[in-house]
């Protein structure tokens, strides 16, 4: 029971943070601080330089040291404030933020990137498009994969060959050129919402072939099991057999595939962004953030840039965790 509550809290909390990034993020995802590029995570203090304790945590000003590093300057102290209203640059509007420090102080709790943008805010804002698109794509790929794979396994014969040859075609083709061609036919500017559906659609539609083969393999043996044969003998319809007898046997496989596909699809966005099909700068997405990490110098010199990896781990682990819990509950109820 404790596990369940923990899972639910984690699940809901994570999704709130990702769906409403504006609540938690101290800055906008595209807000540049050109004088603070690649600043390491800002340290939050309770004790000041003189050793005095402050109930309200604070940060010190950070100053560039000249050799691409930063140091803290104890001369200025900026207390962390909660529920602050800050101005949004270049628009004249104000926005409520969960926490922040007064300008000119900066708080980068996960450090900053090549443009001096707050990585924490970018991870939060990036999650919305990436997680949603990866989930939708996973759902699409698994839906198509399950239906086609099960159909191939259950019906056999010509259906099987046709579907399997189609999946092989899907795996063999050089998608790269297809995607290039797709990009060439699309308009230059793609709105964020269109980007989202494009990502989900492209990844989902190209990603069904492997799950389909896996599921077909399992369905092949599943349909030969005694209770399936007897159900057929009793004249059960094919769809009934699929829903009541086959699908439950496929479920663990589908869950496992989902856990594998979600992070893979988040990373697929890296390639799509390269082709101009993903979210492009300055929009944040986990794919873009992971793409930054693929550079030697970022990996060795700016360790905080690995944060997006842990965001992806957190999300996919949460899904796995929840899936486990539900499965166990369903089983315990059944027994």
């Amino acid at each position: 029971m404790k596990r369940l509550y923990f899972g639910i809290v984690l699940f809901v909390g994570l999704h709130c943070a990702i769906l409403f990034p504006g609540l938690l993020a101290p800055y906008g995802p595209a807000e540049q601080n050109r004088e603070y590029t690649f600043a390491p995570p800002t340290r939050v203090h309770w004790f000041d330089a003189g050793g005095r304790f402050h109930l309200r945590p604070f940060v010190y000003a950070i100053v560039p040291t000249g050799d691409e590093g930063y140091s803290e300057s104890t001369s200025a102290r900026y207390p962390v404030r909660f529920f602050v209203s800050v101005a949004v640059p270049n628009s004249g509007q104000r926005k409520l933020r969960f926490f922040g420090v007064d300008a000119p102080g900066r708080i980068f709790i996960l450090g900053s990137d090549a443009y001096g943008r707050d990585l924490f805010s970018r991870v939060l804002y990036g999650g919305r498009i990436s997680v949603a698109a990866a989930l939708l794509a996973t759902f699409l790929a698994l839906l198509i994969g399950t239906l086609l794979g099960a159909a191939a396994g259950l019906r056999g014969g010509l259906t099987d060959s046709a579907i399997m040859r189609l999946s092989e075609l899907g795996m063999a083709l050089s998608w790269f050129y297809l995607l290039l061609a797709v990009r060439a036919f699309l308009p230059l500017r793609i709105a964020p919402l269109e980007t989202f559906f494009l990502l989900a659609g492209v990844i989902g539609v190209t990603g069904w072939a492997r799950p389909a083969r896996l599921i077909r393999g399992l369905a092949l043996s599943a349909k030969e099991r005694g209770f399936v044969m007897s159900a057929r003998g009793f004249g059960a319809s094919e769809f009934y057999i699929f829903r009541r007898h086959i699908l439950p046997q496929l479920k663990p496989l589908i869950f496992t595939q989902a856990v594998i596909l979600i992070p893979q699809f988040i990373m697929a966005e890296v390639t799509l962004s390269f082709l101009g099909l993903g979210a492009s700068e300055p929009v944040a997405s986990w794919g873009n953030l992971l793409a930054d990490l693929q550079q030697y110098r970022i990996l060795v010199a700016y360790w905080w840039m690995v944060a997006p990896v842990f965001a992806v781990v957190l999300v996919s682990s949460t899904y796995f965790f929840m899936a486990n819990i539900f499965e166990r509950r369903v089983q315990s109820v059944a027994i």
Binding site: V259, M267, Q294, Q295, L299, V309, V313, S316, F320
Partner: peptide, 18 residues
């Protein structure tokens, strides 16, 4: 379980670079 979800979430290029 944790190790595999960590590895799944890191692009292979990053693994190789690391």
């Amino acid at each position: 379980s944790f190790g595999s979800s960590l590895l799944l979430s890191v692009p292979e290029i990053v693994i190789a670079l690391a």
